[in-house]
């Protein structure tokens, strides 16, 4: 649906080249929710604007539906843009127009008859759950409602692609969740391909099928949500994963262990997939002559698959602990934790 082929965007800045996007290769499939995550300045904002040519690539090609948009004339490009919806961090609604007229705006640009517009606007406002706000002005709405208007406006022309530019970054966590739910509904009910950029890992975890991690204009890692969360390769990816999955043992717990003078026999047990459902640790406590002291842990769900880890302290004779490790290693991954490292 969207293909980036060796795409670069270079800005001239004080005589030197600034590579905002650097040789990016990406493919977003039809009907998928694809997330691009990166810290600010990573180039993701430029990347998403290359899709509808708000920014023109310096090198490489961007194909939308197999079509290279840079080859189109201006009027043709405007027609294609009507099939690519876009929503923004700060909503970018027309303040002087009501919700109804904001949603009607893209339709009226192409001279759609008023009756048709009214029908479509009512339909789409119903879809985003704002039927009762049609006559209100953006100023009177909450952030979440404004973004719903943004989504309705983007969907009005029945696009095939929806671009989300930090669409939830200005919203509180609760509202973010409801907007993400709505975006998933957009994909599920209309089959619209969604490309979103964000700096929030919990956002991509919530809705994306696949993600790419960007840094300094480059895509440094990409894959399914599950792969990237359970086995992040690049340090930056690991940092992002850490923002939603606490990996380090909190200092207070480490302090406590050190005070007791037993900073050893601490293990990190990682559960992946079905093993998360197994009572591995309770079996250990029953079968072996050890005490299992759970220090810290987190289990979450990634795309319907449980994933997580526990940090445990095993108390008992050394040989017994070794036997325990051997036993549970067959089911889950175990790593010894030293008191310094997490």
């Amino acid at each position: 649906m969207i293909q980036f082929e060796q795409v670069s965007k270079v800005y001239q800045h004080n005589g030197s080249d600034l590579r905002a996007v650097d040789q990016v290769d990406l493919t977003v499939h039809k009907g998928e929710i694809f997330g691009v995550i990166g810290f600010s300045g990573a180039g993701k904002s430029t990347l998403i604007r290359l899709v509808n040519l708000l920014e023109r690539p310096t090198e490489g090609r961007v194909l939308v539906n197999g079509e290279d948009l840079t080859q189109l004339s201006k009027p043709d490009l405007r027609q294609v843009r009507k099939r690519i919806g876009m929503i923004f961090q700060h909503f970018n609604l027309l303040e002087s127009k009501t919700v109804h007229h904001n949603v009607a705006f893209p339709l009226s640009l192409s001279g759609t008859p008023k009756k048709e517009i009214d029908q479509r606007v009512a339909e789409i406002l119903e879809f985003v759950g704002l039927s009762d706000k049609a006559k209100q002005y953006p100023e009177e709405l909450s952030g979440g409602q404004k973004q719903r208007v943004g989504i309705a406006r983007a969907l009005a022309t029945s696009p095939e692609i929806l671009l989300c530019d930090e669409a939830t970054s200005a919203l509180d966590p609760e509202t973010t969740k409801s907007i993400l739910k709505l975006l998933r509904k957009v994909r599920d009910e209309y089959g619209i391909t969604i490309l979103m950029i964000t700096h929030e890992m919990n956002v991509v975890r919530e809705v994306c099928d696949r993600i790419a991690v960007m840094e300094s204009g480059r895509v440094i890692e990409k894959g399914s949500i599950f792969d990237l969360f359970s086995n992040p390769q690049h340090p930056t990816t690991q940092n992002f994963v850490r923002t939603v999955m606490e990996n380090d043992i909190p200092a207070s717990i480490l302090d406590g262990i050190e005070k007791r003078g037993s900073a050893r026999n601490i293990y990190r047990v990682t559960f992946v997939d079905e093993s998360a459902g197994e009572p591995v640790l309770s079996q250990v406590a029953k079968k072996f002559d050890v005490e299992v002291n759970v220090l810290f842990g987190q289990i979450t769900e990634l795309q319907g698959v449980p994933f997580g880890h526990l940090v445990v302290e095993l108390q008992g004779p050394d040989q017994e602990i070794l036997r325990v490790i051997n036993h549970i290693q067959q089911r889950v991954s175990v790593q010894e934790v030293t008191s310094h490292a997490g």
Binding site: L54, R78, K82, N92, L94, F105, P106, L109, R153
Partner: peptide, 12 residues
């Protein structure tokens, strides 16, 4: 941003 949004909608 509002101008950009209109451009993205294919406005002349």
């Amino acid at each position: 941003g509002v101008i950009e949004a209109a451009e993205a909608m294919g406005a002349t």
